[in-house]
Write a protein that binds this DNA or RNA. Structure first.
Lengths: 265, 265
DNA sequence: CCTACAAGG
DNA sequence: CCTTATAGG
């Protein structure tokens, strides 16, 4: 059994002050993928960095205080890869891949974008380059007889059931037609599987992100943008998928909730 | 009897969250001079701006979130003056003068400076221009038969007894020889009086500012840089001068403590 | 070690 | 409505 969690922490220093450390010491996960760490290795609070029994790798952004992904694992990874071979994005703290026995686990933080701005162009450049990488990664995994799961904040809600107010958000970055179609291609053309949706085909939700503005969390006006996107064999091995909304409810240390999947591998 | 308090609030919005509102509702002062308000009129929390029985005038800096002085008085001032006739400094939120019956009260926030930098040059330009104004103000007050007191953060410790570690700070802005000599000229040549020191000639202290760094407050490693500087007649009428260290100890809402003087006028 | 601002989300 | 960075203190 391998339990993997993904969580966008929205600043690991702030999260550590608000309950992330307690969540980490309670979790039974074997691997934790983090996004928006917003800190270098040295800036990660020692209560997180030196927590007993965990191995931590951080891929910070060159731009101070922005983005940043990390992987915590109980086993030491056999291989670590920062970035996916992109000149533009490999220093942006958005992709970190580690090899654990039989399975490659990646932490992804896809740009959030902003409709009609250069930030949306950047998101689309990322999506185009990353889709190519996903193809190569899948081929490599098949050749090596390895499973792959890309965990993280993909910043796209795939279907109408993946956000509460889909009608109001048809022109909002994260639910644009071209973004949704891109995710469809990841599934249907490249061959990855949305693990949580496969286990729970019925919507709406469960959501994994709620804006801090207004009463979005209390009203469950959220989006499902945090995914486990896995190769088919691993997706079929998934036994449970849970959004730990309660974990964040007791002590809300991020605007995202952890998404945890247990794989029978 | 006229009781006047001066307090550098280090951001009135932060201070209001931390206990300044309670301090204000408890004080028996008739006039309160504030420095480092760091807010425009509209940005001042309503609990302060609309507090019953007080009239408030704010002189913010053109530079958002910086400096800013204010005067709260139970009586409506007959005259209000922002700045002291300086092209450079009148928009810098550092001087506000009001006329109350028989006495002119000013709130001053002198630049803090920084040894060997342009900020120290600015402080010295301010000191030069302001000294000239002090001469004119004293003459005008005598002609009008009015008392004057300039309350505020002068950002200079005058003597060795005015800071805990004077030996270590001989090259620190706020205790430079030229700054101390300038204050001596304000007293000996221009004829103003350091009210609190006149009532309490013995040092060391009492200090009115303690750095937030380290344990400066607990160790009373402070500076006396907040003064009531008055014309001689008013200084002679001063009955008590108190640094409200306890007020800030119960709920420390600033790195400065209020300095309160009661005048028998 | 605080403040407020700015930019990103 | 959050985060971190920055300048000023």
């Amino acid at each position: 059994m391998l339990t993997v969690t993904t969580a966008n922490v929205n600043g690991i220093r702030a999260a550590a002050r608000k309950g992330f450390v307690e969540w980490l010491s309670d979790t039974t996960a074997d691997v934790v993928c983090l996004q928006e760490v917003r800190a270098t290795d040295e800036q990660v609070p020692v209560e997180v960095r030196d927590v007993d029994g965990w191995h931590m790798i951080v891929a910070p952004a060159a731009d101070k205080g922005r983005a940043g992904v990390a992987v915590l694992s109980r086993e030491t990874p056999a291989r670590v890869q920062v970035g996916f071979g992109s000149e533009e994005f490999d220093v942006s703290g958005r992709y970190l891949e580690v090899d654990l026995p039989g399975v490659t686990v990646a932490s992804l933080y896809l740009p959030s974008g902003e409709t009609g701005t250069p930030r949306q162009d950047q998101k689309e450049r990322f999506m185009a380059e990353f889709a190519e990488y996903l193809v190569a990664l899948r081929k490599r995994a098949e050749a090596d007889n390895r499973h792959v799961v890309i965990c993280g904040d993909w910043n796209i809600a795939h279907q109408e059931i993946d956000l509460k107010n889909w009608k109001a958000n048809k022109k909002t970055a994260g639910f644009l037609p071209e973004e949704r179609e891109w995710m469809t291609r990841v599934f249907d053309d490249i061959g990855y599987v949305d693990v949580a949706r496969r286990l729970h085909p019925e919507g709406p939700g469960p959501y994994s992100w709620w804006s801090y503005r207004g009463r979005a969390f209390d009203n469950d006006a959220g989006w499902r943008i945090d995914y486990h996107i896995a190769t088919p064999g691993l997706a079929e091995a998934a036994k449970t998928a849970v959004v730990e909304r309660a974990a964040t409810h007791d002590a809300r240390w991020s605007d995202h909730a952890p998404v945890t999947v247990t794989y029978a591998v």
